[in-house]
Simulated scan of single mutants.
Amino acid sequence: MAAPKQIFRVDALQNLLTDLRDVPVTVDRWEHVEPWAVARVWLRSAAALPRSVVVKWIPDGLRESRNALWRLRSELAALQFLSEDLDVGLAPRVLAADTAAGLLVLEDLAPRVCLDQLLRRDGAAAHGDRLAAFARARGALSAATAGRVDTYYTRRGKLGPVDAAADQVGRFAPLREGAIEHASALGVPLSGRSAHEFTAALEELAAPGPFLALSNGDAEANNILLHASGPADARLIDFEFAGYTHALTDAVCLYVPGPAWLTVGDPTTTGLADQYRHALARGIPGAEDDRRYGDGLAAASLSWALIRLHRFALLDTRSPGDHSRLQLIATLEAAAHTAETHRALPHLTSWIRRIAAVLRRRWPDADQDFADSASFPPYRARH
Rank of each mutant, 00 (worst) to 15 (best):
D289Y: 02
G89T: 05
A313P: 01
D129T: 07
L186R: 08
T270R: 07
Q327D: 00
A206T: 11
L212V: 09
A339P: 02
L20F: 00
A183W: 12
R136F: 11
R155Y: 11
T151A: 15
F239I: 12
Q14P: 06
S65K: 09
G89S: 12
F312N: 00
R73M: 03
D274N: 10
A46K: 15
D295E: 14
A48P: 03
A91T: 04
D108Y: 08
E64V: 08
V54F: 06
F241Y: 13
H32T: 02
I329M: 03
T338R: 09
L118E: 03
R93P: 07
G157C: 10
D163G: 06
L359G: 13
F211C: 05
L20N: 00
R318L: 14
A371R: 15
G283V: 11
Y293C: 07
L159R: 08
R93I: 05
R292C: 07
M1F: 04
T99M: 09
L72E: 01
D238G: 09
A357V: 06
A183H: 14
G286M: 06
V10K: 01
L226T: 10
W70F: 08
T245I: 13
W351E: 04
D163N: 14
M1T: 12
R73L: 02
T317M: 05
W261V: 10
T18P: 03
Y379K: 11
N216K: 14
G187F: 06
R382C: 15
S184F: 05
I237A: 03
L306R: 07
Q368V: 15
L332C: 06
L17P: 00
P377R: 05
V252L: 07
R66N: 13
L359W: 09
I237F: 00
A336R: 11
L262K: 11
L109I: 06
L62H: 06
I237L: 01
S83Y: 01
H323I: 01
R148P: 07
T317Q: 13
R93D: 04
Y244S: 04
T341F: 06
E34F: 14
T26P: 00
D238H: 12
A287K: 05
L43Y: 00
A97T: 07
G170S: 07
L49S: 03
S83G: 02
D129H: 06
A143R: 14
A207K: 08
P377K: 03
L76E: 10
R354Y: 00
D167C: 13
L76V: 11
L225R: 08
I355D: 05
L314W: 08
P174K: 09
I224W: 00
P4I: 03
